[in-house]
Amino acid sequence: MWAFIHKLGSPKWFYGISAKLQPWFWAAAALLIVTGSLWGLAFAPADYQQGNSFRIIYVHVPAAFLAQSIFIAMAVSGLVFMVWKIKVADMAAAVMAPLGAAMTFVALFSGAVWGVPTWGTWWMWDARLTSMLILLFLYLGVIALRGAFTSRDSASRAASVLAMVGVINIPIIKYSVDWWYTLHQPASFTLTSRPAMPTEMWLPLVIMVLGFYCFFIALTLMRTRSEILRREANKHWVQELVAGQVVKVPAEEAR
């Protein structure tokens, strides 16, 4: 167990194993997202209440799921980095943050656009949208804090602490915002919570969610590899890798 953790922590080992894993996740992501998109856009029936604007759910919900999951993943990586000093965990956390912020933005944008046909306005202080907005600020805080330090080690540790503090607060923020919303808007209905969605509606949603998760894993692997090269550029194994032309052409790896 310990040997495994430390092996996983070795950037060299991670660089090798991620090269093997990466194509599978890219393929799965592409397959799932294309299938889910076609199904969700063209084949799923229109909603009886919202009509076709309901199809925004297939990007809004996966993005919102991912936005929350990435923050948790980032905090877990931070914890692993702080406890076991595993540098790869911090590199992963560093590359996750911008993607998490991007996903939060997607969730916010699609929610706002969805609001126009549903509520007749671009922005409602809806519970989900409000928590998403706060989550975006949390992401921006982590990214800004990491960028503010000149020493990389301090930046990593500070970002890890903030991610952990944030992840403890996310459920508290979520529940308090939900509570606040039900207090102030008792009669209106939220975008996505509805009784008993038929199978042909939620199955593409599940596919899209899985596809987004695969995309997240694939992109994180890829960018962590870049981060390894950046931080370990002076290490012997990287220079050997480059000298021996073992480094593959990126175009092949990205597929």
């Binding site: 706060i134 600020f137 921006l140 805080g141 503090v165 607060n169 923020i173 308090s176 606040w180």
Partner: peptide
């Protein structure tokens, strides 16, 4: 930076305090 880090974490307290 401090206000960016701290203000989002203040929201639950604000909600229940003002509430």
């Amino acid at each position: 930076l401090l206000s960016l880090l701290v203000l989002p974490l203040y929201i639950p307290v604000l909600i229940f305090g003002a509430g």
